[in-house]
Design a protein around this nucleic acid. Structure first.
Lengths: 180, 180
DNA sequence: CCTAAGTAAGTATCTATTTACTTATAGGCT
DNA sequence: AGCCTATAAGTAAATAGATACTTACTTAGG
């Protein structure tokens, strides 16, 4: 293979799409920018992904898969898992951003890779309580891990003494108390 | 005042803008639709709000103010407050949606009405603990109250026995345990 | 009758998608 | 091996429809 490698081009387009859509969303994302950023051409995007929405969905799935791979659930150590999720979102804000865009702009696409979530629910059954069921527990864990990414920047910067570590500790502590 | 009432037109435009931007965001929102929906004209939007971003910011501020008015903080009864926030988001999903859009598309605008938040932080000082400070506590409370709106619909529908009440109870219980 | 409120019809730009074309490369055939 | 060719990979330019924003005009009402 020389300069023509379909798989590599496909992958470069997908990577560029994740970046673009994470930054600007489906509606704000620009096909031209993605093509340029991928060192490819608009035509190739349509050849490989059909249309803008197809590309967005592919980018979303890729991001979700990456998160599931990098931070696998640890049903017996939920506080530790929250800490890892917190770190992940700090390290790769792109993933949460693209998920949020999807939730707002294409809710039907957002729950496509559902097995990923359902498997986690299964494994959480043990930790659930009568008042907080397994699904709700998972929902709360995700919410706490993402909480600081969703807060307005002005509010966070108001807390001068805060740091990555203190916030992480707060998230972990919150889930610890939740399970006590 | 007859058919020509500047204040009323302004208000109708703003209301239509909140609806439109909550549904489609800044980038996806359409000026023409807002004008039509408000029973007014594109020109008036520019006369009153300058440009699209000006209108979006006004809509955002209006939504935030509405939430602050309807669900004032109750520093000494945080679990109850979470319950009310949960109800509010269920009742008026528009507000959370427009805040999320702002966070993604115009983060600088999202923290404009900052006093609203800072006042709440002040009042939370009493409830804070060494490991979870006042700001972090507020961040977590917001996150839990919104959690179910951010979860993929497919995940929620997987839980057949869940209802508004059981979820609300889970949110309240989570904050109760957090403060124990 | 003058000013502010309102209307209708542009305009210039942008943007997703297509069409028509060029070139590399794998694999059969001699 | 070396040529030939079908096909996949790639490019550039056009198109058709939106869309934010303006200009030029009309009308209500104090």
């Amino acid at each position: 293979m020389g300069q023509r490698d379909a798989g590599a081009t496909r992958a470069r387009i997908l990577a560029a799409a994740v970046t673009e859509f994470a930054a600007h969303g489906h509606s704000g994302g620009r096909i031209d920018r993605i093509a340029k950023d991928a060192g490819s051409n608009v035509r190739m995007i349509y050849a490989y992904y059909g249309n803008k929405s197809g590309l967005f969905d592919a980018a979303l799935s890729d991001a979700i898969r990456r998160m599931a791979d990098e931070v696998p659930p640890r049903p017996t150590e939920l506080p530790a898992w929250v800490g890892e999720l917190f770190d992940f979102h700090q390290r790769q804000p792109e993933v949460l951003r693209i998920c949020l865009w999807a939730q707002l702009e294409r809710p039907e696409a957002a729950s496509e890779p559902l097995e990923t979530y359902l498997a986690k629910v299964e494994s959480l059954q043990q930790q659930a309580s009568p008042v907080i069921g397994a699904v709700d527990l998972l929902v709360i864990i995700y919410a706490v891990a993402q909480a600081w990414q969703l807060a307005p920047v002005g509010l966070l910067s108001a807390d001068g003494s805060a740091s990555h570590e203190t916030r992480r500790a707060a998230a972990v502590e919150a889930i610890t108390r939740l399970l006590a």
